[in-house]
Design a protein around this nucleic acid. Structure first.
Length: 613
RNA sequence: GCACCCGUAGCUCAGUGGAUAGAGCGUUCGCCUCCGGAGCGAAAGGCCACAGGUUCGAGUCCUGUCGGGUGCGCCA
């Protein structure tokens, strides 16, 4: 059993702090330890001397030199030296390698539960590429948070009493569509009717009739009469979500929030506060409104309608009730087992005939919702403050992502200017299948690999960019298999696996590594590998999966660089299988550790790691 | 009008206040009698939108300006 990996930077920081203390500093500043640029010598370094120049009234190089005199370094530091104002450390290569080969110690479990909501697609139409980003972000973040020790509950909100669902269901009725086309996926089939209805609404004569029908359908939805019909659409949508690799713990239906009395209870609680009231005159006469001005300054009109003067509740009111439930201010939802997901994990759903289950009541919430809803979510957050729970308001996080353009154009679900997720995935897989047929005609399982790589390409394209940047979905870019892509990383993984399989056939796997033979090539790769733990923690802290995605590109590139390294004479510099015995052992273990890390990293982004491509 | 987000190479994007700003795509030139060329190496390509400020040090923090996106309904 190998010892667990040590945190090199943390240990260097600790040594530096001791040394600063020994210099007689009253206050020890924040110490930064970073990797050195390739041509500066050493492996890690610190600029801390520069930040002390003013307080100590000395030149940075002098401070660095004094630090060097006082510092007690771990035995694995071979050399420490001053460069300009920096103090750099050169590590024993054998130690760096040994550390990179050691397993990452497990993260300690975090207190409390995080409730993460994502997907929450209207159950009225097939998923389009705008939804893709939400699902990929939410699912990857859930995986990352779990990995670093959080207890995460993933929830998908089903807006079954919304106008969109009503329009779709009424469209079927309006156009007399009774038997679905068996060759068309059900959510697509319903979606066509929805788009057709919106075209019909352009006609003013039909519009009045349609509006009346939609209103009637809304009432039936609220009464729960059409649940089976919504359910059928939802189940078709779920197939797409599963295909993307997303899974959930619980579905929460909007109608259940209402039916189980959570909405009423939330409104009662709010009405008991001075910020929620019913004006008897003016613009909002007869409605129940919330004054958000103490919590959201600078609004022209800080009043938010919760219950309309006609007695119906707004979407935001239901959202507030949901948020109260998420954070344990309300209880009463009942659940039943709804589905078995592809991984085998059960999926639960709210349902009036169900049983109470320990969902909700989280200490922290994350809502993955597009940036256009920032104001709405700010209002929901304010409602917690209205309830006097500022502590809870501070622990709601809105993961706001910018919208996805389609080939430079704004999409529109109503007008049907979208590309469906199913279509994108099919096309991606088709392209990969063609590449496999060309490059690896003897592939043992081409269909499975094509699926993993095609879906991986799409997922990675959604994850590699920071969430708050608008992205333009372009087929050629999102489905590319070369460059900064998921398949690039998957390829690096498959290639590492291929070498290890050969090594096994040759009976080399048990070979003892001789760490003293490590060359700068191995050290360079080991250093990138060593960043993994820190990167995952940062991705979790910042709630930013792209940090991990970018790192995996770095890691795959470092591995490809190692793999292709040549001597000045143009000969392969880093053969694994034909290296001298002790060095071969080092390389085999390094490739094995690298492969393991790529697999883990891909898994955290929700990408599969194919053994053969 | 007010508020939030974004301006980094021709294009798409990385870049915890720290060393000479990095990738991919595209362009040009190389690399398979080495373990997978979905790969690698090299060249070219930058007033980090602009102007001030804070700091020993700013692409990164602050203020302003200009450009782009979005939000501010008894719609959802």
């Amino acid at each position: 059993m190998l010892a667990a990996r040590q945190d090199i930077k943390a240990q260097l920081k600790a040594s530096l702090k001791e040394a600063l203390f020994a210099l007689g500093l009253a206050e020890v500043p924040e110490v930064v330890v970073q990797e050195t640029p390739p041509d500066k010598g050493g492996d890690y370094g610190t600029p801390v001397a520069m930040s002390l120049a003013r307080t100590l009234r000395k030149a940075p190089p002098q401070i660095a030199a004094e630090l060097l005199q006082h510092i007690v370094l771990p035995p694995w530091v071979r050399r420490a030296f001053v460069v300009g104002g920096y103090l750099n450390f050169e590590l024993e290569p054998a130690f760096l390698l040994e550390n990179a080969l050691a397993p990452l110690p497990p993260f300690s479990p975090k207190e409390g539960k995080v409730l993460l909501e994502h997907t929450s697609v209207n159950p009225n139409k097939e998923l389009h590429v705008g939804h893709l980003r939400n699902i990929c972000l939410g699912d990857a973040l859930a995986r990352i948070l779990r990995f670093v020790g959080y207890q995460v509950e993933v929830m998908n909100y089903i807006d079954d009493t919304g106008r969109q669902a009503a329009e779709s269901l009424f469209a079927l009725e309006y156009f007399g569509l009774k038997s679905p086309d068996p060759s068309v996926k059900y959510d697509h089939w319903v979606g066509e009717a929805y788009v057709r209805l919106h075209r019909a609404m352009a006609d003013s004569e039909q519009r009045a009739q349609i509006e009346a029908g939609v209103q009637a359908t809304l009432h039936r939805l609220e009464a729960g009469e059409l649940r089976d019909q919504v359910d059928r659409i939802l189940r078709a949508q779920l197939l797409t979500m599963y295909r993307l690799g997303a899974e959930y713990d619980a579905l929460v239906w909007e109608s259940d929030i209402v039916r189980e009395g959570l909405l009423q209870e939330a409104m009662r609680a709010l009405e008991a506060t001075p910020y929620v009231f019913r004006p008897s005159e003016g613009k909002y006469a007869g409605a129940l409104v919330m004054d958000t001005s103490p919590f959201i300054p600078g609004l022209e009109d800080p009043y938010l309608v919760l219950i309309r003067s006609n007695g119906t509740s707004t979407y935001t009111a239901k959202d507030i009730a949901l948020q109260f439930w998420k954070m344990g201010l309300l209880e009463g939802l009942r659940f039943h087992r709804y589905d078995t997901q592809p991984s085998g994990a059960p999926l639960y759903s709210t349902c009036p005939e169900g049983e109470p289950m320990p969902f909700g009541g989280a200490q922290e919430t994350i809502n993955v919702v597009d940036a256009r809803q920032s104001h709405a979510l700010r209002v929901v957050q304010a409602s917690l403050e209205v309830r006097g729970r500022r502590d809870l308001a501070e622990r709601c996080f809105h993961l706001a992502y910018e919208t996805v353009l389609l080939e430079g154009q704004q999409m529109s679900g109503r007008k049907g200017i979208t590309v469906s997720v199913d279509e994108v995935l099919d096309e991606a897989v088709r392209r990969v299948r063609a590449v496999i047929a060309e490059k690896n005609p003897d592939h043992p399982s081409p269909e499975e690999a094509a699926e993993q790589i095609g879906v991986g390409a799409v997922r990675f394209a959604m994850l590699k960019t920071e969430a708050r940047k608008q992205i333009d979905f372009r087929y050629e870019q999102a489905l590319s298999l070369e460059g900064d892509t998921g398949p690039y990383i998957q390829y690096a993984y498959a290639r590492a696996g291929s070498i290890l399989r050969k090594a096994e056939e040759m009976g080399l796997l048990g070979e003892r590594p001789d760490l003293t033979q490590a060359t700068p090539y191995e050290v360079a790769l080991a250093k990138v590998l060593l960043r993994f733990g820190e990167v995952v923690q940062e991705a979790a802290r910042a709630r930013a999966p792209h940090i991990l995605a970018q790192y995996l590109l770095d890691l795959a590139a470092a591995w490809n660089g190692f793999y292709n390294a040549k001597t000045p004479e143009g000969k392969p510099a880093t053969p694994v299988l034909t290296a001298p015995p002790g060095l071969r052992g080092v390389r085999l273990e390094l490739v094995s550790a690298l492969r393991q890390t790529l697999r883990q990293g891909l898994g955290l982004l929700g990408l599969k790691a194919p053994e053969v491509m």
